[in-house]
């Protein structure tokens, strides 16, 4: 992953320069074709020019309409699962069985929010919500502290072996996470963190779910790049005033790098909300399930031929809504973070 990430960042930087270089080539390859020759060579009256212009505008409008039609159809396809999910979550089971298509997107709201209330009585979803929020906040905070400290050291402090260390860190980003999971699974088992029964259950589960994922080399890299954009003069000025490194980091660098920190926070929280495999492997006690695994287990009815789909959709909607809210209010940061990282959740 990492190399690619770096590539893209570099590409973004160099693209403008490259665009300039291409200038000549492109100009050569786009020879005037067909109608242009007529336009240029033929002697034209003003009226002819007007009709041509008119034709062009008509074509342009038609093209624009076509674009909007295409985009609207695609947009509908893209959000259809969400609409269907919400509409279905408001239906009763009988309504759901009704095959008439008008009912697909417009339920008669017979059940109102009864399905939502029922989710809490039939499953422990609220407990999973709470677990996820606690783990998410705790791991994000710890991860931020670690990331900030190491990014600062790599961006501002000088020490022997810095370049080698940094290159080594970047190299680890290329390795797929699944390769780590195998040994980590064994490691946490050896530490006893997968043993989630008895008085240590909560602590074990907490360590197990947070520790292996606290350090993200990519976030360190991202923040380091951001820190390096802060002019060194500020640092020197602070030093002249006798400010300590730590104070400088706290008062100057963190506020200036806030947008990046917010992006990291959101992506990290979303990660906690969406993580599935690790908790599934290592959580033996359902009291410590995170939301995704709790959701999957609660409706894991492979042999059951009669699943209560509206109820299921109500639970799925509840799991999805916090993500939508975050997205709605913090879209800018998410898109910025994602376009630079390519990390899913």
């Amino acid at each position: 992953m990492s190399e690619l990430e770096k590539d893209v960042i570099q590409n973004e930087d160099t693209s403008n320069a490259a665009v300039e270089n291409e200038n000549v080539e492109i100009a050569q390859s786009t020879n005037p074709v067909g109608s242009t020759e007529n336009l240029v060579q033929g002697v034209m009256h003003e009226q002819d020019i007007k009709t041509v212009a008119k034709k062009q505008t008509v074509g342009k409008i038609l093209g624009q309409i076509g674009l909007y039609v295409f985009l609207t159809i695609m947009a509908f396809v893209v959000i259809f699962p969400f609409i269907w999910m919400i509409a279905t979550s408001l239906k009763s089971v009988d309504e759901y069985y009704d095959a008439s298509l008008e009912l697909v997107l417009f339920p008669s709201f017979a059940r109102d929010f009864k399905n939502y209330a029922e989710v809490f009585t039939t499953t422990d979803l609220e407990m999973y919500f709470l677990n996820t929020v606690i783990i998410g906040i705790a791991s994000t905070l710890m991860s931020l502290v670690i990331t900030i400290l190491s990014a600062f050291a790599l961006a501002r402090l000088e020490f022997k072996g810095k370049n080698i260390l940094f290159a080594g860190l970047l190299a680890t980003m290329m390795i797929p996470g699944e390769l780590f999971t195998i040994t980590n699974y064994k490691t946490v088992a050896d530490f006893g963190w997968t043993n989630q029964f008895g008085s240590m259950g909560w602590i074990n589960s907490f360590f197990n779910l947070t520790m292996p994922f606290l350090v993200s080399v990519f976030y360190i890299y991202l923040l380091k790049q951001n820190f390096m954009q802060i002019p060194e003069e500020l640092y020197l000025a602070a030093k002249v005033d006798g400010t300590t490194d730590f104070k400088y980091l706290l008062r100057v660098m963190i506020p200036l790098a806030l947008p990046t920190l917010i992006s990291i926070t959101i992506l990290k929280m979303m990660g906690a909300w969406n993580t599935y495999m690790w908790p599934k492997l290592t959580t033996t006690n359902s009291d410590y399930y995170l939301i995704t695994i709790g959701l999957r287990e609660a409706f894991s009815s492979v042999d059951n031929q009669q699943p209560d789909i509206p109820l299921q959709m109500a639970a799925v909607t509840m799991v999805s809504i916090p993500l939508f809210l975050v997205f709605l209010f913090l879209r800018k940061y998410i898109m910025k973070g994602v376009s630079r990282s390519g990390i899913k959740g």
Partner: peptide
């Protein structure tokens, strides 16, 4: 709208597709 599927829980929306 086109970015919306990104901010989803892949298990949860997988269940929607299944349904």
């Amino acid at each position: 709208i086109f970015f919306l599927p990104y901010v989803t829980n892949s298990i949860a929306i997988g269940m929607v597709f299944a349904a």
